[in-house]
Each structure stands twice: as C-alpha cells, then as structure tokens.
C-alpha cells in the first residue's frame, strides 16, 4: 500500500479499529463501561508503547523476509472481517441468507474495490471513517433523552475485575501492524498516537452512551449497541437503526478491502511476473476463503502470534545489521 498518503492511512487504521469495536460480539456490555474502558486504555497504552519502541528501534516490521507473515495476518483479518460482517448482518437483519453467500458477496465487493487501486481503498476507508464518526455522534445525540446518569455504574478497580475485560481485548488486531509500520518518524508517530486516542474516544462515547441508557442491562444483551440504535430517535425519525447498520456494513466492507489490499501487497512480493497483482489477489482470495472456515477467535490468536513473530524477526534482523556494522 505504498501509494497511500499518511493521513489516509491514519484514517484507514481508525476506520478498521473503530468498526471492529462497534460490530464485534462480546466487547460491548460484557462488563461495565468503566471496566471495559480501563481495559481498553491499558491495551492502547501497551500499543502506544509498542509503537514507541519500534520507532525508537527503527525496525522494519514489514520487510521482505516477513512478507509471508504479513500476508497471513492480513488475510486472516480479512476473513475475520468477512465473518464479522456475516454475523453482524444476520443479527441486524435477521435474514435467512446463506452465510457463504454473504461472505462471498463481501469478498467480491472488496475485490471489486481493489481493482481501482490501493489509493481507492484508502479513500473509501476515509469516507467510512467520517461516516462512522458522524453515525456515532448522531447515535449519542439521539439517545440523550433516554440517558440516565444513575445507570452509570462505578466500582472499585482491582486487578481481578480489570483483568476480566482485558482478556476479551487481549488480542492485537491486524491494523496495529499497519500502525507499527506506519509510525516510522516523529510526524507519523504523532498521527499514530492521535489514531489511538481517536479510537479510544470514539469507543468511549458509544460505550458510555450504551450504559447511560441500559445500565447494567447491557450485560444481558448480545449486542447492546444495536439495541441502542433501536431505542434512539430524533423527533419523528424513529428507525435510524437502518442507517447505522448501513454505515457499519459499509465500514466493514471498507475494512475487508483494506485487509485484502494489504494481504495482496504482501503476497505480491513473491510474484515477479507481469500480472503479479492479479495472481496475488487470487491467492489472497483463496487463502482468505480457506481461513473463513476458522472461528474469529482462532484467527485473532493467529494474528496476534504472527504480529509478535513479525516484530521479533524485525528485531533480530536489526540486531544482525548492527552487529555487522
């Protein structure tokens, strides 16, 4: 994704992270907003530290040696996003459409966008980021009348109750690798930090809004954010949930195409022929289709392990270079 500009990449990472938090199961409502936010804060602080360390060490996590690992990470994330889209769509629309059909459609749409180029994918993700922010603001605003401050639970933080939500967020998402690779200088590092901050604030607004409306009832809901979209209304506009679902599916498609594009770029390193881009895309699609048979949780484990492996390879390579000097 060399043709993507810095700001676009920052928006892309934000869109990918934000939509994952919004549409993934068992993130919202499993624990109180306070605990989830603390867990997320810890996770983002760890990510920030990781960014800082990799920037200081000046390591290249996406080198040619680790291209195959990057390809696995992004293809796996692509498959996970397609599965997320299918499960979210099934929940939101309650429609008896075959799961394989939905996944195929999602991958086809993502591949379609990819034919327009990497820059196009980034620009589409930028639109998705804007839409996500606007939708979150409208969602929070439309629920002001239902909010009740007394429903916001505050409890004492202990290691035990913080560890529980942290276990839900313990994986490293694929977009973190993009962020690590992106933050190579001070200017980009600042943008990377803003992305983390922006994602945290975005998530915090939605999480607190959900708890202000439902209180501890969120813990009994599978997807409390969707419930929030259904109860929120502005004057006579009562069925805004369809708009939110549309925006989130759009963002999920944008994320799928971003991951597909990144995976294709990684695979492309192994093709030196004229149509390497097409071959890489076909290989990525095939790989993604195979990975889509795995559960999302398993794919997140694979992604996390591969990201650590990428960083270790980069560190070893850097050390070797330093020793050679």
């Amino acid at each position: 994704m060399k043709k993507v500009k810095d700001t676009q990449l920052a928006f892309l990472v934000f869109a990918c992270a934000a939509v994952r938090l919004v549409t993934a199961q068992q993130v919202f409502g499993a624990y109180s907003a306070q605990l989830t936010l603390v867990a997320l804060l810890i996770k983002y602080a760890a990510l920030f530290a990781l960014l800082f360390v990799t920037k200081k060490a000046k390591i290249n996590v996406m080198s040619t040696q680790s291209a195959w690992l990057a390809a696995i990470i992004f293809a796996s994330s692509c498959a996970a996003t397609a599965l997320d889209t299918e499960s979210f769509y099934r929940y939101a629309c309650d429609e008896p459409l075959d799961a394989r059909m939905v996944i195929l459609l999602v991958l086809a749409a993502a591949a379609c966008a990819l034919f327009c180029g990497d820059g196009t994918v980034a620009r589409t993700a930028q639109i998705a980021a804007f839409l996500l922010v606007i939708a979150a603001a409208v969602l929070a605003f439309s629920n002001i009348k239902n909010a009740d401050m007394s429903k916001l639970s505050m409890q004492q933080l202990t290691l035990q109750n913080t560890a529980q939500p942290l276990s839900l967020l313990s994986y490293i998402p694929a977009e973190a690798l993009l962020l690590v690779a992106f933050c190579s200088d001070n200017q980009r590092f600042k943008k990377g930090a803003f992305v983390l901050l922006g994602t945290f604030l975005f998530f915090a607004v939605l999480l607190v809004s959900t708890e202000l409306v439902f209180g501890s009832g969120t813990q009994s809901e599978l997807r409390p954010l969707q419930m929030l979209t259904r109860v929120g209304s502005i004057s006579v506009f009562k069925r805004l949930d369809a708009v939110y679902v549309f925006v989130w599916i759009f963002a999920l498609l944008a994320k799928t195409s971003c991951m597909l594009s990144a995976a294709r770029s990684a695979f492309q390193a192994y093709f030196i022929e004229k149509h390497s881009s097409l071959y890489a895309l076909l290989l990525t699609l095939l790989f993604t289709a195979l990975l889509s048979y795995m559960s999302v949780a398993r794919q997140r484990d694979i992604t996390t392990a591969c990201i650590f492996l990428c960083i270790i390879i980069a560190l070893v390579k850097k050390r070797g270079q330093n020793n050679a000097c």
Partner: peptide, 14 residues
C-alpha cells in the same frame, strides 16, 4: 436484499 445494496453502494463509492 440489504447486504447487496450496501455492497453495491460500496463498489460505487470505490
């Protein structure tokens, strides 16, 4: 249905 509309809208935007 709706998923195809969203996919087509996404393709159009791209």
């Amino acid at each position: 249905g709706p998923i195809c509309i969203a996919a087509l809208f996404f393709c159009m935007t791209a």
